[in-house]
Design a protein around this nucleic acid. Sequence first.
RNA 1: GAUUCCGUAGCUCAGCUGGAUAGAGCAACUGCCUUCUAAGCAGUAGGUCACGCGUUCGAAUCGCGUCGGGAUCACCA
Length: 599
Amino acid sequence: MHLEHLLSQKISESLSSLFSIDIKPETIGFQKTNKDFQGDITLVVFPYVKAAGKSPEDTGRLIGNHLKESTPEVIDYNVVKGFLNLVISNSYWLDFFAFALSKNDFGIQLPGASGRTIMVEYSSPNTNKPLHLGHIRNNLLGYSVSRILEANGNTVIKTNLVNDRGIHICKSMLAWTRWGNGETPQSSGMKGDHLVGKYYVEFDKHYKEEVKVLEAGGKTKEEAEKQAPLMLGIQKMLLDWEAGEPETIGLWKMMNSWVYAGFDITYQTLGVKFDRMYYESETYLLGKKIVEEGLAKKVFYRKEDGSVWIDLTQDKLDHKLLLRADGTSVYMTQDLGTAAERFREYSSLNQLIYTVGNEQDYHFKVLFLILDKMGYPQAKNCYHLSYGMVELPEGKMKSREGTVVDADDLIAEMIGTAKAMTLELGKADTFSESEAEELYKQIGLAALKYFILKVDPKKKMVFDPKESIDFNGNTGPFIQYTYARINSLLGKARKELAVDSFVSSLADSSLLPIEKELLKIIYRFPETLKSSAAEYNPGVVANYVYELSKEYSTYYQTVNILKEENTELVLFRLGLSQLTGRILKNGMSLLGIDVPERM
RNA sequence: GAUUCCGUAGCUCAGCUGGAUAGAGCAACUGCCUUCUAAGCAGUAGGUCACGCGUUCGAAUCGCGUCGGGAUCACCA
């Protein structure tokens, strides 16, 4: 039985019989026992001393005594100030161990077990330039949160809403027609997204020159920006696109296909996947009907110039534009449309999560509010998974200062560092060429992914490109290493002892303190997954696997496992190692990180 | 200006539904490889939890204020 559950019942009984205090078991909380004191779990008794009419020490002692007598699991206690430290019997921990070891995926629920379906949108790139470090955070977060929600029993639909249309795409397209000379990914050997990005930059360069010339000719900056031939060019191109002009559409399709091929490579390397793709070119007209409905319901209003707005001043927000005077959509229009479309398509959707940076906090606040005002009951199930920007030591990444960290470059660099370090340490000497390459990739990506995911999504994070990401300490490779050592140990045991499963039986008195500590950490795995999901924070899992790795490393280094003479102890320790290894592997997989069998 | 998020060791981060002496890693310094993988382990040093006031038996955690930083407030996306 679950320890906290059991104890809170008993404590509630204790409080009732000792002091006639009526406290609901659910309201009783516990905390970890401080390392410096004896005990496995601690009850803070301060909340009950007033009603008990005793000193904190006496209150603690009385409860402790009562528990010790009434609860076999509690074998001892001590009271320090107002803290009642409870010592739980080794047999409880060993029973728990036997249970956890008997499960292949202890703590992990199967998708669908909760009966809830959740859609997670993430990635959502623009098709005019390659992915950068910020996108990496988005992709890793979205994927990992999806995995964590699945591990909590939810059915998850991972989606990607690709921003494949609009004025920004036209920039790349126009620049390519002007200066591309028919260059293709094949002819240039460039990854498609990078090639298209190159022309996006090219556009900007020429456009700035045009503006400069016009300004020199006496125009104001604003006039120059509006009248520059390139600006007129892309505006015409956008109109052509919307009119379905075949040549423009053809060019658009061709260049987008290059970008998708490029993105696919990056996605595949990162290990992120999607169940359902949405393309803005297919959804951008969707919201207009909702705007009509909103007008009819008088939720929205139309200005004299024909533009449509919503007044949110009652909600302490502004007036927000929903449709331009010329009848074209803005982002809000589209987002309303896609949301409504998703509610229609997935009628059983319990939640809709948008993984988007915190610069759009206001946008989503407004979006959900409008959905609510439009009468969609699903509005309350929408959640903006808002994450902080990835910044450089000197501040934000700026494309015009060339400080944007390219995703593919960064990944390649991480893999390269992993390779250099592995070669230096001679770790892959017995690996085949392809095994070694696979290992470099696993390690490099683990370092990158863990570095990003261990940070609370809500917080901005600093990344210093000059200092490569660590491979020691609180890092992905450290956890991989712990796993690899366990795997090596188990392999050796299977060979030398000719056993495949590791018996869990052990005399209570043989359990070492550090083994109990390990079991206590393992015990927390299921609740860790729950709170990670509840907070939409993979960092909770990341920090947990690190804690487990660290504790196991100490164990590995200080306790003989295979060299122990007593076979019963050997088997138990192998079983404990196996269980630890499984949790490390499963935990890492929820972060989208692979663990190598050896390294 | 309004709204909102943030400020913990030199650096990067945990801890925040109030609880014991605030934890890791990196960087620095000491030890430990004829012993299950040293990408490791053990240890030393490093803190006015931005600051002030308040609530409380108890505040890094909650409230108010000040200072400092970011983001948003577009017929942009």
